[in-house]
């Protein structure tokens, strides 16, 4: 399976990249479906529910884009990707966008030829250990066996962290979060390391979450966000401003509950009017309908709703907003103005 993806991707990269690089938005419209790359399963971020419908924080971004472009949040084909296959899948045109807790780094943006359109979650790499080991700091992990998802930035951060602290470790490279969870629970590794949000989400699915602790060290900056192929700026704009629309909607108090009413006619706040298309022609500039942002917000809610519904404090994952609060609340979530 992995091989066929790789080789298939090579062939596709060879034969079709030229075609795929141009006008992704036209391809999506012609297809009537958005191909969106997500994880193979990380509860809260992207995981299929009992009926096989994908749900989660990253999935919400995919659905919002589908709603903005096609008017239908369900018109998404979710393509599960691993840390290893995700970039090849995007570069080859197998997927139109990737929303898979992927860290925005210089080399991915510049050298791997992708365009990160924003940040939907500010994260950092953490460590999870069983409580019975009695470890209180990541610096006590000398000689530990560490489970790690291969092909990720965490793999490189981990090497740097242990090197900088002059301690040794035994890496166990693993493809997916599910396998890592299985090996960690069986004790085949002492520590599981990935983004702190991923650790919280994984721990929430354990039988006894209280038996496992997250160590205090956060060893890296992991700004996670959706990305598209480099070179198709129209498509990048669409995905970027769909994400910004969700963020702005929260800032301006537009939610899935009141967006229908607010978009009926122009209100008193001109920015809301521009956002919802009752004033100006922002949708037309993007090559979309005037109610693109309204559709996206109606489909998945604003940024805050998306966060609270999937990974917020009232969910089993229980992440607080922290850095991911609006800039007005002391966080880093900030959208450029709709003007």
């Amino acid at each position: 399976m992995k091989k066929s993806v790789l080789l298939g991707a090579l062939t596709v990269a060879g034969l079709a990249a030229g075609a795929a690089a141009a006008a992704t938005v036209d391809d999506v419209k012609a297809r009537g479906k958005l191909n969106c790359g997500v994880t193979t399963g990380l509860v809260g971020f992207a995981a299929p529910d009992a009926n096989g419908n994908w749900d989660g924080f990253d999935v919400g971004v995919c659905r919002a884009v589908a709603a903005a472009v096609l008017g239908d949040p369900m018109a998404v084909e979710f393509v599960p990707t691993t840390g290893k296959t995700r970039f090849t899948a995007l570069a080859s045109g197998e997927i139109d966008m990737l929303a898979r807790n992927t860290t925005w780094t210089f080399s991915r943006d510049v050298d791997l030829k992708f365009t990160f359109v924003g940040v939907n979650y500010y994260d950092g790499q953490g460590f999870m250990v069983p409580k019975e080991l009695g470890v209180s700091s990541a610096k006590d992990l000398d000689g530990a066996t560490v489970c790690i998802q291969t092909g990720t930035t965490t793999e490189l951060n981990l090497a740097d962290f242990f090197r900088a602290n002059g301690i040794s470790y035994e890496p166990v490279p693993i493809e997916t979060n599910a396998e890592a969870q299985q090996q960690y629970l069986a004790g085949a590794c002492d520590v599981y390391t990935t983004d702190a949000s991923g650790l919280a989400a994984t721990r929430a699915t354990f039988e006894n979450p209280a038996d496992h602790v997250l160590l205090p060290e956060i060893i890296s900056k992991e700004p996670l966000g959706p990305l598209v192929r480099h070179g198709d700026d129209e498509w990048a704009d669409i995905v970027r401003w769909t994400l910004n629309a969700l963020i702005t909607a929260e800032e301006l108090g537009v939610s899935s509950a009141n967006v229908g009413e607010m978009s009926m006619e122009a209100g008193s706040n001109p920015e809301i009017n521009r956002l919802l298309g009752t004033e100006g022609n922002l949708g037309e500039m993007l090559g979309l309908s005037a109610d693109w942002a309204k559709n996206a917000i109606a489909a998945v809610g604003n940024y805050g709703e998306l966060f609270e519904k999937n990974i917020g404090e009232n969910t089993p994952i229980g992440l607080s907003r922290g850095l991911n609060a609006q800039w007005t609340e002391g966080g880093l979530i900030y959208s450029p103005p709709f003007r």
Binding site: G18, L156, A159, P171
Partner: peptide, 27 residues
């Protein structure tokens, strides 16, 4: 065609990466 498409993507074949630090550990 492959060369042309890779050039269009801005990814001309190059083996220089082989001499750059790997950055990851092998068990």
């Amino acid at each position: 065609n492959t060369a042309q498409n890779l050039a269009d993507l801005g990814k001309e074949p190059s083996f220089r990466f082989l001499w750059e630090p790997a950055g990851y550990d092998i068990n």
